[in-house]
Write a protein that binds this DNA or RNA. Structure first.
Lengths: 125, 125
DNA sequence: TTAGGTGCAAAACCTTTGCCATCCC
DNA sequence: GGGATGGCAAAGGTTTTGCACCTAA
């Protein structure tokens, strides 16, 4: 499927580029709405889907209810505060060679991994 | 809140005890229904909530849509097949000391972590 | 007896989809 | 022009909840 450049899609990307908060689809919708007031939620979801397919963004599911999104970047881990719900990027070095180790042990084809820590952030202790 | 022993709750626990498939709430409901035909989905969800609170089971969110549950056990990692969707336990040794390292570096109170690998399982390659 | 639990059904939510108009290339 | 995209609203699917009736302790 050949992609086109639309202002809606561009704005969604821009919102995610300038953002470290791992927003939900709804948050993105509200943000984008300020600039394109009659954008629809369906468009946001459809574009997030497209951007996921194209590998531009990553979907996080730490939540159980809402998906969260972030701009694609090198692998890193997340910390989710159990009290305030914030999701924070960690700069803990990514484990080297662990994908290969799992692949060797299991016979699976391992394309990656993700990890989330949980507990209380500084503000919530 | 004082908990009571009900056949519904006991059966849900039993289903999760004899199960390595990380079932969804709906799967649990269908299973339990065979023994208690007029159990309601609300009861299943309410009990899963209670069991989560009590730390009897763990909720996994690898999916984006459905939550999955498993009996609580010592920390271990999961592998999710991107094709068939199965979630498989790994026996990769859990990383020691990594919670403490993150805690020290960030100042957060870290109570645990989880990790999921993804790729293709043996059957799907 | 009585607070916690259950069934049922409706409500609440998040996400996807169909349809048709619109816009990009 | 033609296919990709967007807006709108309805549909879909999962989870939560209100309420009246049970039941374990």
């Amino acid at each position: 499927m050949k992609r086109r450049v639309t202002k809606q899609r561009e704005l969604i990307i821009k919102v995610l580029e300038n953002n470290r908060t791992h927003p939900t689809a709804d948050w993105i919708y509200e943000k984008v709405k300020k600039e394109i007031p009659d954008i629809s939620k369906g468009t946001v979801y459809r574009n997030l889907q497209v951007l996921l397919e194209d590998g531009v963004i990553t979907e996080l599911n730490l939540d159980g209810i809402l998906a969260r999104y972030e701009e694609k970047q090198k692998t890193h881990y997340h910390f989710k505060c159990e009290k305030c719900g914030r999701v924070i990027d960690l700069d803990e070095p990514v484990l080297q060679g662990i994908n290969e180790r799992v692949a060797k042990k299991t016979g699976f084809k391992v394309s990656g991994h993700q990890a989330e820590f949980h507990g209380l952030c500084k503000n919530c202790q």
